[in-house]
Write a protein that binds this DNA or RNA. Sequence first.
DNA 1: TAGCGAATCGTACGTACGATCAACGCTACG
DNA 2: CGTAGCGTTGATCGTACGTACGATTCGCTA
Lengths: 199, 199
Amino acid sequence: MTQREALLAAAKKCLVDKGYGGTTARGLAAEANANLGSIGYHFGSKDRLMNLAAIELSSEWGNALEQAARAAGGATRAERLRSLMAELLAMIPQSQDIQSASLQALTQSKFDEKLRAEIEAGHAHARAELAAVVLGQPPPDPDSPTARGLGTLLYALVMGLVAQAVVEPGALPDSDLLASALDTLMENDPPSAQAGDRS
Amino acid sequence: MTQREALLAAAKKCLVDKGYGGTTARGLAAEANANLGSIGYHFGSKDRLMNLAAIELSSEWGNALEQAARAAGGATRAERLRSLMAELLAMIPQSQDIQSASLQALTQSKFDEKLRAEIEAGHAHARAELAAVVLGQPPPDPDSPTARGLGTLLYALVMGLVAQAVVEPGALPDSDLLASALDTLMENDPPSAQAGDRS
DNA sequence: TAGCGAATCGTACGTACGATCAACGCTACG
DNA sequence: CGTAGCGTTGATCGTACGTACGATTCGCTA
């Protein structure tokens, strides 16, 4: 492995283990068994290396999400939505590291335009993909009302579940409970009492 | 204003403007017109000050969310859900600062247990409140299936919309578009084509 | 008004940081 | 065999950091 690769891998590991602020150039070099000066040679600066690592981790998270989304299926929209949620709930606990790193990237994007642009592109892609899965159609244009409405709604669900899972990894509901909550939202109007209560 | 108050206010401002990592003890003292040594005297350390500021900003965001949620109303669940979404979409652009700060707090919570516990408590409260609003009932126990199912679902929606708004402040759909997306999800089964398309 | 504790102040210390640079292999190619 | 170029090395630069400390001032009480 070249020092460049090792440094990038170390940056990803440190981003997960120590966070953006807790990572130092010397810590990266040590983790990568690389020379301190190599950071400047290969990446220009420590910040640029960290931002690149954040972008790549966000991209990995996007791929994991896309894979989960494409595994979902069903004959009706409601079934596909439920299947999507089940796939998500199965996937989220397995990729907590890249999720927390992606959230760090999201917050850092406020202070780095390149990072922001990359993440924005990833979001747009995710919105279109998620809308496509639920509608059972090919992905719409990212600027279409479908992507901006339904896509934003679905992606909000995904990111919101991830955000809660990062704080409380064990607190996500199981697939059945989430499905019954979806039913509760979709049912018409029983003026009180929730449908999905169990045990 | 005492130096303690000034420092805490400065920490909130710096958290928003420069981020967790970009804030220095000297920058805080300068922003607060306070003495550098006062940080240690009043808060123990710069990190403890920053964590306290993050907790308070998260709490402010929780209050803003609660206020918006309680402003929602309607005769049926579907109406209350739609009203809630409309209130959220109106509130989100007005409190972007505390939202981005809260997201920073969320990511930092992985590295500070006290911060994590505070945020977890805030999430639990929000889940119960949101479920209560949509069901038109008093808030359920935070551990109830209602809060863990419907509450998690609704809070995921909220956090997901916020996450997208932080990256692209102008990209949130308007209330009508989001409502039609909700309709799309709730309708039964037209095997293709989306209901809510417009212009 | 003397005394006391809390708050504020200025400063200095030691450390760790990110960046830089000349020197040095190593490899590939002429 | 030479040499040109890329990657690597270790050392060093200047700086900015967070914290600690003693001196000083403020506000209150007796």
